[in-house]
Amino acid sequence: MEILGEDRREGISRRIVPRVNLFLLFLVSLILLLSSLYSAEASVFKKARESILDVASPLLSVLSVPVEVVNNLFGRAGDYLHVMDENKALRQENAELRQWMEEALALRQLLSSYEQLQSYQPSPDVIPIDAYVIGDSNDVFARSMVLNAGRNENVRTGYAVVNEAGLVGRIIEAGKNASRVLLLTDIQSRIPVYVEGEGIDGILVGQTRTRPLIRFTNKVTTRPVRSGARVLTSGAGGIIPRGLPVGVVFGMKEDEIEITLNADYSQTRLVRVLEYTFPKDTQSDANDLGETDVNTIGLNENDRGTL
């Protein structure tokens, strides 16, 4: 069957399509976009996002199940091809890990004896909230994931999200039953970190590349950074707990350090949101100080709009 427009052109080209609506809606979109760009993330946008997330989350939850099955199917087909290589690598890694385990056990014993000796102040309690990834934005410039836990499960904006390998990101929107994690590779992601044993503090800045960069805030040494050194959260600003593993140093790039993230986003399925209240100074002016810190490192909620 011949269809007008697809196979033949006669008598169709002059049909007028109303465009008033198009211009009007384009104008509305442009205003929305400009207000997203030039004003801080307005609460009305945040509310709208959270409501849409809540509405879409049951659908995403249901749909992510067959998606996971298909992903696994393709993943497994690839695995079979590399099974011998992987086996060899795993054996080697296992041997190395056993050595580490011995060392860790010895250190644990040592630590417990120190703890008994000193009046030990334990780190503030972190309550983990388990969640599944039900959405993963396939948008190049907006790197985020949707989790199936929200305010009902005590998830709040700002909480850190980790998987078994390390930091995944932090919560930027918390709906009732779902929340959005801003990944470390997003252009809006700013996480205070330090490089272990190198005397370097900095802010981890996402750049949409797989390897984000550390910008220095404090560097006490001039020697080049050892590649492979561990990068951990510094806890500066009082939002994300100190000491969460983030990645390892990959190399220097001008005046910045490139790092390889521990968390493999393409494999991330189950995560933990860390409910964490930062220890507060008991004095009254502690709150003011905390707020200043947060603003300095640019970790407040208004980040999205001001960047």
């Binding site: 946008f45 934005s137 948008d139 410039f141 907006a142 985020s144 929107e173």
Partner: peptide
Amino acid sequence: PASSVFVIGLFQDALTGGPFGLWSCVYLM
């Protein structure tokens, strides 16, 4: 119609976490 395009764009902005209005602008264009 343009209204369908607009809603599709806004839905994409909301679900992928980008700034509101970006994809609706692009799609209407």
